[in-house]
Nucleic acid binder design. Sequence first.
DNA 1: TCCAAAACTGGAAGCGCTCCCAGTTCCCGG
DNA 2: CCGGGAACTGGGAGCGCTTCCAGTTTTGGA
Lengths: 323, 323
Amino acid sequence: MAEYAGVSRSVASRALNNAPHVSRAKREAVERAVRHLGYVPNSTARALATRQTGAAALVVSGEDPSIFADPFFAQVIVGASGALEEADLHLMLCLAASDRGRKRVGELLRSKGADGVMLMALREGDPLIRMAEEAEMPVVFGGRPVGPAPRWYVDVDNVGGAREATEYLVSRGRTRVAAICGRLDTEAGRARYRGYRDAMLAAGLDPFPPQEGDFTESSGAAAMAVLLAAHPDLDGVFAANDNMGAGALRTLREAGRPVPADIAVVGFDDLAVARIADPPLTTVHQPITAFGREMARMLVALVNGQDPTPLILPTRLVIRSSA
Amino acid sequence: MAEYAGVSRSVASRALNNAPHVSRAKREAVERAVRHLGYVPNSTARALATRQTGAAALVVSGEDPSIFADPFFAQVIVGASGALEEADLHLMLCLAASDRGRKRVGELLRSKGADGVMLMALREGDPLIRMAEEAEMPVVFGGRPVGPAPRWYVDVDNVGGAREATEYLVSRGRTRVAAICGRLDTEAGRARYRGYRDAMLAAGLDPFPPQEGDFTESSGAAAMAVLLAAHPDLDGVFAANDNMGAGALRTLREAGRPVPADIAVVGFDDLAVARIADPPLTTVHQPITAFGREMARMLVALVNGQDPTPLILPTRLVIRSSA
DNA sequence: TCCAAAACTGGAAGCGCTCCCAGTTCCCGG
DNA sequence: CCGGGAACTGGGAGCGCTTCCAGTTTTGGA
């Protein structure tokens, strides 16, 4: 390429990266050569020389890859992908479900296979947490893990959202409100239960003990069945996400308990399923795409040597007909 | 590292890649050094030397990134990710929505930024099709594009599935069956309409002209409204995917037309929405995770210098209560 | 016309790894 | 005890790009 343009490789390199110290003439010669030869610099070689891979990884943890089927992640990815595109970084996606998968993430971190990493869906004691700490690479957490908050993260106001949902239920006259909560080994699961609990206490009502699900529709249905059997006089349910809310709705329908007349239900997430559910689910909206976008932006800032501050995104109650 | 172990870099390299020509003693020395130093080879340097990046890209085309929010892709990714993990390849995800995005994919292809590429959701005349042809890199198509079939692809038996769905409707005594079809600038959209048409013709019934949607729930609802206005006597609808089927269901519910008593509906995909819909949607199941897996496996074969044959995955009718 | 400063140029040294190949060591049968 | 082949070893040349730096050319003011 350089020889075709009649310049040295140095000049060619500078011209390609439009760096200074290249005369207009040579710059054009290089440009012409590039066009003529269809030359595209080899990204690996460039990565080796610059010590930058030009890629950021998004890792989704979980003991089962199917966790990723939750449409939540798709939206996060849309946001993250957009922000990375702006910074001209590629997105590597790691579904760290198996031990093998986690090991590969560890190697990615240590072999400098990416310029930075976004970590999501960590459970308590997840080995990725330590790996992240040891990594010599920017790491931003999507959602705080259980335990001490990491240096950089983006999260959603889970406590506030859950509180608002519960307050709404209470404000509509519901007094026997149970909580179908998410996995309690995740911070989101715990925080949403806390929000529920706070609101109940503040209203002078007795919070129910956590009825744990795992964020899936079927677990929500099962949890609802348990609650119904134990407390036939329930008049409200706060589900820690929409999938479980939809499951609860299904159980209630099968049990012949009209919603919201008999029992009101509110979910969390505001995914498509909330709109499609029957009746449409009142739910706590969280800005999922923005979540992904901010996570990526924070990572980009870190990669560029800045020191961004953690971010907590607001939620907002969306009222439909289930409550 | 090599010097710590007291061997040459050649020997260290061979030991790390457990290649032959390394004595047991040195192999152990290297192993010890690795453990002691926590050494992990730099993946970029390795990539440069071996001319293999260790990554495969999955690109999802579309004019709008929100197409990716379709849970279909999440399942594809789960499958592909698993298969790539087996081959020890990383997954790069490219949402080629904007021109910028497409340009980046082009550069990825030409700069050897990946060992191979999987292409999905191509529309007629999509610039990525030509880019793929020109790429000096293995490319497998997920779903054939409109036009001549590419050399390597994985697809689903769209025609057969649509035919089966329509035949089922007909077999239940429905005679005025319309089709809400997907975008006709995609091969899946066309093929599913063809399958519907074939079945109608074979049954001696008049196929309806295509009522085009864009695979979204709202487009399905809109299409259903149009159909209902034009043909109040409809007694069956084949929707080219579940999202549109769910939309149709919504319109029918709002119009007070009982399903399936009055009008039967069948969808295509068998996503979660089909199960959650009210009534649950009879639909054509396609093995989406397998789709992703096979696509990735085909790519891996290609990367390894083999010459796999295109694959068409079977579909299967899942009968629920909407038809 | 002359000179210093500014602008440009290209040789060469990496980046961290793989792999060819010539040289060395080891092991055996003869 | 020797020769030959198998097994091992490490020097060195890349992989394709960036970047430092010493050297060369331009520029413009005196």
